[in-house]
Design a protein around this nucleic acid. Structure first.
Lengths: 164, 164
DNA sequence: CAATCCGTTCAATAGGATTTGAAAATAGGT
DNA sequence: ACCTATTTTCAAATCCTATTGAACGGATTG
């Protein structure tokens, strides 16, 4: 491989790390995927620790996360005891799974709170509502309306990504 | 305001902080917005520092960020010198602006790299390409293809959010 | 079955991001 | 023009998260 190509590859690894870092997944994850993605041969943990100068633990964790999202798969290299990995390239599926995994629970947390708020707030309508209570009602209501719209947009975007 | 309502409000503030925290925007941002959103009257920096127990600096920065995304607007309270803020409720627009702002540059960075890669890689086709070079070509090509599709999905999702 | 090789775990640490708070800048009032 | 109230800035400190690496467990080999 020419020095030029190697340099390009390193840049991809760097940018991959920046991207995952910036979305709160840690630098290593993106770097590991980029490294494997640009490796013509399956890569073992050793290869990762050496190429990226990270610890075995970090490599192990990153690879497991990537497997969980189907970004990487284990391959069998005959005559070798080590685990080897290669990249999968259906980015749509990968991102879809990662998004569902990452954002799913947060949506549930927010949903739970909204549901509780709805349970509490409508009961106010019966009382002679103070200004403060009426205001609270309106705010919760607006939030609820947006939640429904967001849900819809979210679902249809996810489906789009899912389809080839 | 009843104790129950106050408690609910605090929970929204807490969850708001968790959400912005988890997407790498810092806890304060979400808390400040939630506080203002659930305040019937315009809020000054003092109100924020007291209610959320944060420093004046943090409050100032959070408010400015929120203004930049149109999540909050300054309002004039007559007879007061302080700046007061109230929440805007067009969440679609707010999120759209925040996304464009946050993800925009990253996309550009990645784009620049891909463009450079494309510039470098096609030139390889003329040479007698080694296996390594052919492989690199294929990988860059797949990435490029995805980029185009992602661009399309991104744009149409953004437009959906934009429209009421 | 002892020795070795790998992968995983997790407490400790390093590194980085967030927050503070004092100082500087700005705007308002007299 | 000065004084005061308020906001903004940014270096320093704090807090938190990602990463390390030693210890463990499981699996393979001779």
């Amino acid at each position: 491989m020419t020095a030029e190509l190697q340099q390009l590859r390193d840049r991809f690894i760097e940018v991959g790390g920046q991207i995952t870092q910036s979305i709160g997944l840690g630098r290593v994850l993106g770097q590991v995927f980029a490294h494997i993605y640009f490796s013509p041969t399956p890569q073992g943990l050793n290869d990762l620790t050496q190429a990226l100068e990270i610890s075995k633990g970090a490599a192990s964790m990153a690879v497991r996360q990537l497997m969980h999202w189907g970004a990487v798969q284990q391959v069998w290299v005959k005559g070798e005891r080590k685990d080897y990995y290669e990249a999968l390239t259906d980015f749509g599926s990968i991102i879809r799974r990662a998004l569902l995994d990452q954002i799913g629970q947060r949506m549930e947390t927010a949903d739970a709170l909204l549901t509780e708020a709805e349970r509490l707030v409508p009961s106010l309508q019966k009382k002679a509502t103070s200004d403060a209570e009426a205001f609270m009602q309106e705010r919760v209501h607006k939030l609820h309306a947006f939640r429904n719209r967001a849900q819809h947009i979210w679902d249809s975007s996810i489906i789009k990504l899912l389809l080839k």
